[in-house]
């Protein structure tokens, strides 16, 4: 498919997506919002799991740090929520930097266990009302509605456009990142850390940067989540939340933006279509993870291998 046709198709899809809230009731718009939030979370985790190959099963911790930063500063100092976006990224990123620095060198499965531990410690800290600011098990309520240019965001449709814009921005930036020197270095060290180190890539530095960036992005999603819900509690940031994000990346296709988007749509959206079977949702989910690893390790939509137009030029010359 040529780039031109791809752009047209993308624009058509986007236009349909943008008009969807006009035809759907608010329940389904809210489902779309959930998909959008998980898609961004998935993309942020994809940077860590997919591109760098670091198994992070505690991503909900960074999401939580962002959400609580927004909630605490908004309820205490009445700073508009959306203004806090950069600050949420900063706190989540700093938190990730502090905890990831000593553990980043750990091998795959060890890192996985440690991140689970960190996620749990954060959740327990939130429940125990650490520093007296997290509101304990009840969480924080009364977060004010965000407003953009005088329009206060209230309905799911308002949030739909906010989340849509944020998702598109994320896709665009992460796409650039993927094709940058930074993205290539991450892929290199994921495939062969020794060779990457040998080629002059500071692996610890790059892994840490990817981890912090992914965490900071999750912190911003936390902000949007807090703004949308106006109430947050530790229940929203359990281990299963981390598993959900992880599964979105792994099942969708780790390392691939479209894979992750598809993963979010399937994993968050499908259960809504089969609400009668809601209790069996996690069962199917677990079975799907096992089956996927056995039959299609790379996920539903794996990234296409990098291609450069060297080959096309050669063929073109041959024809001429």
């Amino acid at each position: 498919m040529s780039i031109h046709r791809k752009n047209v198709l993308g624009a058509v899809f986007l236009a349909i997506l943008g008009l969807l809230p006009l035809f759907l009731n608010s329940y389904w718009v809210d489902v779309l919002n959930s998909i959008g939030i998980y898609a961004i979370l998935g993309l942020s985790l994809n940077l860590i799991v997919g591109h760098s190959g670091l198994f992070n099963l505690g991503h909900a911790a960074f999401y939580a740090v962002g959400a609580y930063t927004a909630a605490i500063l908004n309820t205490h100092f009445h700073i508009p929520v959306l203004w806090l976006l950069p600050l949420c990224a900063l706190t989540a990123g700093l938190f990730a930097l502090v905890i990831a620095r000593p553990i980043i060198h750990l091998r795959g499965d060890y890192l996985c266990i440690v991140t689970i531990g960190i996620g749990e410690i954060v959740r327990i800290a939130l429940i125990n009302n650490i520093f007296g600011i997290t509101g304990g098990a009840n969480g924080i309520f009364g977060i004010s509605r965000p407003s953009i240019l005088g329009l206060t965001l209230r309905t799911p449709t308002h949030f739909f456009y906010l989340i849509l814009v944020f998702t598109l921005l994320t896709i665009f930036l992460f796409h650039l990142l993927e094709y940058s020197r930074f993205g290539r270095a991450l892929n290199f060290l994921r495939e062969d850390a020794v060779a990457a180190e040998g080629s002059g890539i500071n692996t610890a530095h790059y892994k840490l940067a990817a981890f912090v960036l992914g965490a900071a992005w999750a912190g911003m999603v936390g902000n949007i989540y807090a703004a949308k819900m106006t109430i947050i509690s530790p229940e929203s940031f359990t281990f299963w939340e981390s598993v959900l994000m992880f599964a979105i990346v792994i099942l969708g296709g780790s390392g691939s933006i479209f894979g992750v988007l598809l993963g979010a749509a399937l994993i968050v959206g499908l259960p809504e279509l089969f609400r009668e079977f809601a209790s069996a949702r996690m069962l199917v989910f677990g079975a799907a993870m096992v089956a996927m690893m056995i039959f299609r390790t790379q996920g539903i939509l794996p990234p296409r291998p990098r291609s450069y137009d060297l080959f096309e030029t050669v063929e073109g010359e041959r024809k001429a």
Binding site: V243, I250, M282, G286, A287, M289, M292
Partner: peptide, 18 residues
């Protein structure tokens, strides 16, 4: 690869628990 088995283990855990 070893990490595929880790994901499979995680899936099996979710499956059994549910």
């Amino acid at each position: 690869p070893r990490l595929s088995a880790v994901v499979s283990a995680l899936g099996a855990s979710i499956f059994l628990q549910n």
